[in-house]
Write a protein that binds this DNA or RNA. Structure first.
Length: 712
DNA sequence: TACTTTGTCCTTTTT
DNA sequence: GGACAAAGTA
């Protein structure tokens, strides 16, 4: 058991062995951030500076928390019990369970994931007759979460206009409903525990005394509420150790505030700022490309990665005629890499948005190359699993209306929309839950079923409870009659396994507070979406969005769809600092690659059922030419016009093109906007207008009589 | 009541 | 192209 301090570089060593004072570690991509964080904890404990119980370590994902714990137990044979290590939400949950009375919550309060939250909100809006066109539930959800993440309750939101006033009303009604039903959404976990501590000085003091060392990972991704939450624990002898990289801040769209890094430095008068700039991951050319790209951003703390490894290969750039062409080429390259001995699992295909994966999947499938797509539906989010969990929730907490509505009539048992409506009216009148008013109605069958399940499983261990509920609820029977039901039944069986695995884990770590096993399992299901999908560990090509690639590394990386409008995404260009975030995203993507990086774009692409004509991304031009090797002629002048003759749009297309003198798909130049592609046309003669995608300069409608357009 | 068909809308995502 | 909700049919 050794910390292997001798393997650290001078900066890493300095960070690990800092005195008990506040520190900000600016850790570039691939600079050994996790290693520094875990070694720091081990060093503190080993040196007797703190006991495990004095440590509070926060991460963003369960995966990161798990990895830290594994590495730590390898370095120190210390019982992790007593150490608080986990995600913000996991830790907030732990605190709320421990002090549920003070937080005004039932002990077995249920957690709503985003899906559940949206469903609850829709239900509320329907019941109070809110026009869903004027107030789309998604926007309301977004609004509520944004307020909570700013730490604002309904009464504290500034009412800037009539619209905001309505949103706030809905926020208040929603909060009331949650309180009544004893459920808590994700941001509420944080806000509630924040309020708990800030109102209860004795409790706050207790935790502030207890945690003398607070360590935060991915600090650039914290939002304002998380920062204030962290600050609650400060006392005279608390030291904060925050690790982050402003260049990898890619979650502003959901409230992350990079400014927290600067605020932290100022608020805590941070004396130690350590920069980790040596990269141990990528070859020189890849790193140079990343550095050159990110240098175009203005709002940076500033940092330059370097590597002791050689320059390596140039970046390979490919221009496809179409998205299919791009996919075809990609598959060939993957096959070549595999032939030369690169394991498929060490190759990643990255894209900006999930919709892009389909074409690649299709090409891979037809060539029989195994692949695994990350993201999308996770285990605990699958409909059949959520159904089973709803039954379990009702056992733990019968007043959960969300769960009630989800499965009262699933599988179908004659409880229709009318019955439900009557129940809801009765519940509203009585101020009670749906389960409580089910007696005199058709829904009584359901109530009885739940009560039977409850008594039948009262003395069973958790996995058997789950097994029994899955069988007796009728879910299995129902899916047997469905065409694609076999997979779903398999997932339900997997849920029983998950319960068994969870029970086993609990027994080993014993970190949980005194909550009943069922509630603990339901909490686990809500907080941990279940990344351990089937097929994990198999030899397969890795496919994911750039966002989900953060923190990972691969021998070879394909960064696809580098087109204006796609990456950078068209909607981000209009957002404040949106372009800089897109660039950071590209930076994250590039720095995932160890040895080989492919960049590709396509001239045409099917998106949302329409063919789009895209120009190459500006990010390609921001990478120095000397680092790249073009596999196709650069921005080929003789753009191939796709063959529309067989398409059903051909007729319309021809009519549009008549009398205009340009073709759709043709390259043109404009004295002010530069080069672009014609994407649409209308009118003819002096009325004729064409729509041109100028890439960086945007998409514009131009009257041919006025604009000086030239064929390029 | 339950299942099928049609019309709308599209970033990024972890908890 | 696909998810989801509302409208249509047995």
């Amino acid at each position: 058991m050794s910390l292997h301090l001798e393997h650290l570089n001078p900066e890493q060593l300095a960070a690990v062995t800092l005195p008990d004072e506040h520190a900000l570690i600016l850790a570039g991509a691939g600079s050994g951030k996790t290693r520094v964080l875990t070694t720091r904890i081990a060093w503190l404990i080993k040196g007797g500076r703190v006991s495990p119980a004095g440590i509070l370590a926060v991460t963003f994902t369960n995966k990161a928390a798990r990895e830290m714990l594994t590495r730590l137990t390898a370095m120190l044979p210390v019982n992790p019990r007593g150490m608080w290590m986990g995600t913000f939400h996991g830790l907030a949950n732990r605190m709320l369970r421990a002090h549920h009375r003070e937080a005004r919550l039932p002990q077995s309060f249920q957690i709503l994931d985003s899906q559940d939250q949206l469903a609850a909100l829709k239900r509320l809006m329907k019941a109070s007759g809110v026009d869903e066109d004027r107030f789309p539930p998604r926007e309301v959800q977004w609004f509520i979460n944004a307020q909570k993440e700013e730490g604002l309750r309904p009464g504290e939101v500034p009412l800037t206009d009539e619209n905001v006033r309505r949103f706030v009303e809905l926020y208040a009604a929603y909060d009331e409903q949650c309180q009544r039903e004893g459920v808590v959404d994700f941001p509420e976990l944080l806000l509630r525990s924040f309020e708990l501590l800030s109102r209860n000085e004795i409790l706050r003091e207790h935790y502030a005394q207890r945690f003398s060392h607070i360590l935060v990972d991915e600090f650039q991704d914290t939002n304002r509420l998380q920062y204030r939450w962290l600050k609650l624990f400060s006392s005279r002898h608390t030291s904060y150790f925050c690790v982050g990289d402003d260049d990898q801040s890619i979650y502003t769209f959901r409230g992350a505030n990079v400014g927290n890094m600067a605020d932290f430095e100022r608020d805590f008068k941070v004396k130690h700022v350590v920069r980790l700039e040596q990269n141990y991951r990528s070859h020189g050319n890849i790193l140079d490309a990343a550095n050159a790209l990110i240098a175009n951003n203005r709002n940076r703390l500033g940092k330059n990665l370097w590597t002791a490894a050689g320059a390596g290969e140039p970046l390979r750039v490919f221009e496809g005629e179409s998205d299919n062409d791009e996919a075809r080429w990609l598959v060939e390259e993957v096959q070549a890499l595999a032939r030369d001995g690169t394991p498929l699992s060490h190759i990643a295909v990255l894209y900006r948005s999930n919709a892009q994966s389909r074409v690649v999947e299709h090409a891979l499938f037809s060539q029989g190359i195994p692949y695994r797509v990350y993201g999308g539906l996770r285990f605990f989010e699958r409909a059949e699993v959520k159904h089973a969990l709803a039954y379990l929730r009702l056992l733990a907490f019968p007043d959960d209306d969300n769960a009630f509505l989800r499965v009262a009539n699933f599988p179908p048992r004659g409880i229709g929309a009318r019955t439900i409506e009557q129940l809801q009216d009765a519940a509203k009148q009585a101020g009670a839950s749906l389960m409580k008013v089910a007696d005199g109605s058709k829904a009584l069958v359901f109530k009885k079923l739940i009560e039977e399940l409850k008594s039948e499983t009262a003395n069973l261990p958790l996995p058997e409870v789950v097994e029994h509920v899955v069988a007796r609820s009728g879910l299995i029977e129902h899916y047997k009659t469905e065409r694609e039901g076999a997979d779903r039944i398999q997932n339900l069986e997997e849920l029983v396994n998950a319960a068994a695995a969870f029970t086993q884990e609990e027994r080993e770590t014993e970190s949980g507070e005194a909550v009943d096993p069922l509630t603990a399992f339901l909490t686990h299901a809500a907080l941990e979406a279940g990344e351990h999908q089937a097929g994990e560990g198999q030899e397969a090509l890795q496919m994911m969005t750039v966002h989900s690639a953060k923190g990972l590394e691969f021998d070879a990386v394909f960064l696809t769809g580098l087109e204006e409008g796609l990456f950078p995404h068209e909607q981000s260009v209009n957002e404040r600092d949106g372009l800089e975030e897109e660039r950071r995203l590209a930076y994250v993507a590039i720095t995932r690659a160890r040895r080989r990086l492919y960049l590709s774009h396509a001239q045409t692409r099917m998106l949302h059922g329409q063919t789009r004509y895209n120009v190459a991304s500006r990010f390609l031009e921001e990478i120095p030419n000397g680092l790249m090797k073009w596999l196709t002629p650069r921005f080929s002048r003789q753009r191939l016009v796709p063959d529309f003759s067989r398409s059903k749009d051909a007729f319309m297309m021809k009519r549009k093109e008549e009398g205009i003198g340009f073709r759709i798909g043709q390259n043109v130049t404009h004295p002010k906007f530069g080069t672009g592609v014609i994407v649409d046309a209308e009118g003819s003669g002096t009325e004729a207008r064409v729509q041109v995608n100028f890439g960086a300069a945007g998409v514009k409608w131009l009257a041919l009589a006025v604009a000086k357009l030239q064929a390029a």
